[in-house]
Design a protein around this nucleic acid. Sequence first.
DNA 1: CTGAAAGCGCTTACAG
DNA 2: CTGAAAGCGCTTACAG
Lengths: 342, 342
Amino acid sequence: MEKIDLKKLAKELNLSIATVSKALRDSWEIKAETKQRVRDLADKLNYQPNPYASSMRKRKSQTIAVVIPEIANNFFSVVLDGIQVIAEKKGYHVLTYLTHESYTNEIATIKHLQSGRVDGVLMSLCSETADYQHLIRLKETGMPIVFFDRIAEIPDCPTVTTDDYESGYGATEHLLRRHCKTIAYLSLSQHTSINRKRQQGYMDALKNSPAKPAKNLAVHCGDENGSIMLAIKKLLSKKNRPDGIFASAEKLAIATYHVCNDLKLKIPGDLKVISFSNLRTASLLNPSLSTVTQPAFEIGKEACELLFRKIEKKSNNYMSEHLVLKSSLIARGSTGLDQKLK
Amino acid sequence: MEKIDLKKLAKELNLSIATVSKALRDSWEIKAETKQRVRDLADKLNYQPNPYASSMRKRKSQTIAVVIPEIANNFFSVVLDGIQVIAEKKGYHVLTYLTHESYTNEIATIKHLQSGRVDGVLMSLCSETADYQHLIRLKETGMPIVFFDRIAEIPDCPTVTTDDYESGYGATEHLLRRHCKTIAYLSLSQHTSINRKRQQGYMDALKNSPAKPAKNLAVHCGDENGSIMLAIKKLLSKKNRPDGIFASAEKLAIATYHVCNDLKLKIPGDLKVISFSNLRTASLLNPSLSTVTQPAFEIGKEACELLFRKIEKKSNNYMSEHLVLKSSLIARGSTGLDQKLK
DNA sequence: CTGAAAGCGCTTACAG
DNA sequence: CTGAAAGCGCTTACAG
């Protein structure tokens, strides 16, 4: 089956390429009858316009890029789902790039994105990223960029985040109410803006607590499974170990469960656990896991909608928007509250 | 910051566009000194070639499409991870399309893919797909297609699957050994080839069983969460309810856990459960879930590698390859085996 | 209402 | 070793 293009349609119809092109785009310049003939043949021969030719001519690619640290992750895969829904509605295509939490990868990807392959970028920083020069450079080429969750604060770049300070405060308060005296805040990396906010919420909640817990324990475990297990094992093996864990990422909670199994520590008896998490099985774990859950699907949708707003009124140098969505705290068995919530 | 293209580089360097282009592609026609000058300026000005212009000229897009039913799913998101790893290594870009289990969406996506937007397609069928005409048409345009997991059997299209018959047999045998008398095989949809194989394995295992379980119970629950819960609730409310569940998809097992909570049925006491699943938290569930786990990451990698082999020797009409990877059965608490496996 | 022509930013066969 | 020219498949301002 040969590839069919405008030229072939034109020849077959005894029309010029220009006329066929206009007919297919439903131009008012073309009379109805001609449009019909053209469309009929295009349908019959299953004509699909070459997107790259149009892209070049129109200088827009109908494509956006999503740059995320990883994909095999409940949070990011659901965000992506939300993004895809909006992009599809707009007739846009979605290219995905994974940085695998590596700054070097992130730089290479962002640099490539200056090529004009996409009309806009949706992005969540990798944990190593502390410097935003590569992103500022991309932005300065006129590329619309919207950050979500792990954001960079760059002028004119809209962001979608969740109420990280409040969630951090709330989760800590929850542990305090559950009578924890020593609460460890676990995070993967200390550099992200999110982490700063969550940890600040945690610290403020401790400060305001009448109970005055003994210590402010913040442990940065790194990003690798090995280092995470090790850090948590070390933490929980001490004789003055914490009696509460506030995990800022799902994998830290999972690792905590495993370590508790190994060390024969009982959750919630010996240790109460609450975690930022989008696990769909949180309520089925043993014990069910108390979570702070971010609205991942909405984050994806909102971020994508902000991006399209930015793409569509590119010239308009309007204020950038910063959307903050609410996470929800769901108390379950790991903090001693095993009422069956639906 | 203005967009920089070959023309600008050429002007700046007092060279022709052709020379600059060749220098950047390291052509032997260009002398070393010129190459250096060109590269230096390109680096300095952060030149990125317009990919769509090259694509058009070279008639390849350096892009592949991944068409999957959903993304917010442990299996598919890990497969995608594997695909991305290989694609990135090859310098290819990855477009993702979700069919959301809808045949209509699948047809529209596949039709679009005839446009030349991508050089190859990696695909897992949606559950509604029973007719392959749209795929055959795409293949006949010369598009390399590799199917994984939910495959279509189409000449010249390589496939990557797992040993579904054997896994179905093995999981059923496992339930029989755990003294189940009536085993329900739960699936989302009955049309997929995978399902046929798994179910065949299940039925043969029952047939060969000395125990002769009372019934051959295969329940097709549909794809929506509502219909799934309903079907399972109905099944487990009967007084001659099954004492074993073999779930061919993770969400069926999760629904089963929820229904058991509602109906106060104990797993594994009243009901034993084993499920195809890529849940990373299977071992932490209450009770831990016995699983048949597919090597999702490898599936993605292998499928992507097959695709590149196909893309690279397009002319060569070689035999299509059919790769079958092994799933692993991990017995846990939900079938009464709670030894802590690591 | 239709068509010739220029051009999007590249690559490559060919001439010099 | 360098460059002029054609062309990838479209779109669009312009002429008729």
